[in-house]
Nucleic acid binder design. Structure first.
Lengths: 131, 131
DNA sequence: CGGAATCCGCGCAGATACTG
DNA sequence: CAGTATCTGCGCGGATTCCG
């Protein structure tokens, strides 16, 4: 991984980055992982994914639907009922995102610590120099 | 995975998302994976990560350094020489990001296909309805 | 309930110019 | 070579309102 980057600027790498930009943003990652347990309704997602606005939830869900990662099902009743669930491709994404989410939660403390030290150093010395 | 989200809005989830937002953006993911093979210099990274501007590379590298994911070593010579390499924590991040990058490159074609179909459908019918 | 539409601020990120 | 500094714009995303 990474060792296949010997070729400088190639279009394939650019495409990967483009899709990565969509699938690997905070909201998409969290939404997909949240749908891992099964279908959810709009309001469930909004309440479950904390900090997301209904606008960003809508935008995120539309993007994931467009990419074929989830499907949106509308039941024509009153009050409206809309269910979101992962497609097979979406489910295949789960084991790819899980390690990253797990890593993040496991390294929260160490990252906080590293930040504090970095900020302290930045105040003391303007630049760290090797000899 | 995801099943631990039964509790609606909790501060821990918010923190995970916060760090995720930093570590899981396109530039950081690609930079870390690119450093997986060993130390690289600034210009090597700029040429290797296609589409990145020197400003975004600098910003990304600073953020990763601050989080303790890579270390920056300056050799005081002319011309200047700066090396970036992953810390142990940075290396532990590699196996967490690799699956996502691999998944993305493997599903590029199917995502493109899904988008085309979605865009075609959107033009035909204003809304898909379940019965 | 599950959005769509609109308004709007501010922060991300590109472009350019300059330095040790 | 490896940045920093400054300016700028435009798009992300929050808040609010309205609708089927």
């Amino acid at each position: 991984m990474g060792s296949d980057n010997g070729d400088g600027n190639n279009p394939a790498q650019c495409r990967v980055r483009e899709v990565l930009d969509l699938v690997a943003d905070k909201w998409s990652l969290y939404t997909v992982s949240y749908l891992g347990d099964g279908p959810r309704r709009f309001t469930e997602l909004k309440r479950g994914i904390d900090g997301i606005s209904q606008r960003m939830l809508t935008v995120t869900l539309r993007g994931l639907e467009r990419d074929g990662i989830l499907i949106r099902t509308v039941y024509q009743v009153m009050p409206p009922h809309v269910a979101y669930e992962l497609t097979p491709m979406g489910k295949s994404l789960l084991p790819a995102t899980a390690p990253l989410i797990e890593w993040t939660s496991q390294h929260l403390a160490r990252i906080d610590q590293a930040r504090e030290e970095y900020d302290k150093r930045s105040l003391a010395q303007p630049l760290a120099v090797a000899r």
